[in-house]
Amino acid sequence: MWKKGSSEGSDRFEYLQTLVTEFQDTDSEEAKEQVLANLANFAYDPNNMENLRELQVPDLFLDMLTEENANFVEFGMGGLCNLSMDPECRDVILQSNGISLVTNCLSNQREETVLSAITTLMNLTTTSSHAEITDPAILQCMLRFSLSESPRLRNLAAVFLKDCCNQEQVARAEQQMQGQQTAVGIPLPKD
């Protein structure tokens, strides 16, 4: 309810808090999904970043990445993709060991989840996290994605390889891949 013109950010804070509370309290998977999608969409708006950080929503999203429900994973990953654009949220995610959790989503079956994961990894790249994000395993995964049938996946992986690592690293990863000869590791998403 945007009463009083909502110029007071506290209204928004309370609303978001209500969402978080409902998410934690409800036993209904459906309600959880809806609230999670709500929160992830709120994370798209930079005006909410501070509130979401205060409510520890970045951690809530990270928790979702290890859920069994594929919607939880997709929405949580989408929320992280939105949040990680903000440098402060990025730092929070990095501190909560986000890279490995997000990296695991690269092998998710849903394309949308994988795309969010790639974008998030790009957002998470800082001077200190660079080494971890350009791990040869991740680069090889991106190389595979860059050959994908799906143009979105192909493009995004290409952007990653262009912007997040240097060409030497790419070349090395390519060599290693040729050495392996098999497509072990991360399967491509289905849809």
Binding site: A37, N41, Y44, N71, G78, G79, N82, E112, S116
Partner: peptide, 18 residues
Amino acid sequence: PKYREGRRDRAVKVYTIN
């Protein structure tokens, strides 16, 4: 529930820049 209803009916979907 009422408090989460928007002005328009919407699907459960998360929008990202992708």
